[in-house]
Design a binder for these strands. Sequence first.
DNA 1: CACGGCATGTAACAGGTTACATGATTAT
DNA 2: ATAATCATGTAACCTGTTACATGCCGTG
Lengths: 183, 183
Amino acid sequence: MALREVILTVLAHRRMTGYEIAHDFDRALSYFWRASHQQIYRELASLDKDGCVKFKVVPQTGKPDRKVYAITTRGRDELKKWVAEPTPPPQPRYDLLVKLMAGLLVDKASLHREMERVSVESRAILKQFRRMRRQCAGQPLETMAEYEQSLYLALRRGLLQVEAQTKWLGEVTEFLESGSLKR
Amino acid sequence: MALREVILTVLAHRRMTGYEIAHDFDRALSYFWRASHQQIYRELASLDKDGCVKFKVVPQTGKPDRKVYAITTRGRDELKKWVAEPTPPPQPRYDLLVKLMAGLLVDKASLHREMERVSVESRAILKQFRRMRRQCAGQPLETMAEYEQSLYLALRRGLLQVEAQTKWLGEVTEFLESGSLKR
DNA sequence: CACGGCATGTAACAGGTTACATGATTAT
DNA sequence: ATAATCATGTAACCTGTTACATGCCGTG
């Protein structure tokens, strides 16, 4: 149920249309959160109903009207309250882990192929994260507002996670190839 | 949509009742997958409808009848097919990351407290993982079937993830305390 | 006598995904 | 011509969560 708060957060940073929020989730915020535009429009309607956001209709020529949303005082209060609440630990639900167990029981050859594919993918993502981080590091600290700093920390988390994942995949591959666990 | 396959996987290992599956998710499989008994009963009904599992009713005295489920050939085929399919990368949706960004914008004091709470929690989980891993490591390799080996690898993944998480929390805490990013 | 364990379920609701819909403009 | 971009939405479906329901047994 955090999509509501994600939207409030981006609106606390600056006013935007639903379309722009969806667009940001596909680009700059893609390693931060993801949601379809349908989901965002639905949630914005619900936030508006509860008085947490308000909007102005900005007519355009040739294009559909824009609804520019802004957070309200009530929305800001709800967000503050939410920040103070204890965060539930994330549930472990990782398809590849299931595939590992299933594959060992029913089809090792396919499992091998799929693990190899994911390993390649994972190393590519790792490269990309490292490149992005170098880009960020090139920027002087003073020019970074809090918003950008938290994006940097999100990126940093992604990098640490992918590093751990890549290491794990290496160990699993070794296990699948040698047929025994190393410890 | 992997709950279906998780259930097929545990049934490929041994026949069980829905109650036992739910119980295992709360214990041995808790760092592997989680689901409520309601969800499991619903999914078992759907799997039965599709001919992927079958069951025998075992009457008991004093207790409700047990429905002992087993995987069918069709179920095994479906599982094989699924193992060979490319696994979609997991979506990044981490509430604490949202809280970090939201907190910087609306309430730094609450954010600080919550981050501290999660750090403590995270270090406790790390300790627990390490203890479990030592327990596993004490066991001779030969006695471990493939099923147990994959559970060990699931545990290993959990450990690596929590290590990365703990490291990240350390960096975030330092950032919150010093007010600037270190790089 | 209250509570937890065993063992099954139904019903309502919340959140995420997919498909469908509109309609002008600009780029290939 | 065709596709992509801008900008909004509705509707159906699937999955996950929460609440409610039954009924016997053993333990404190």
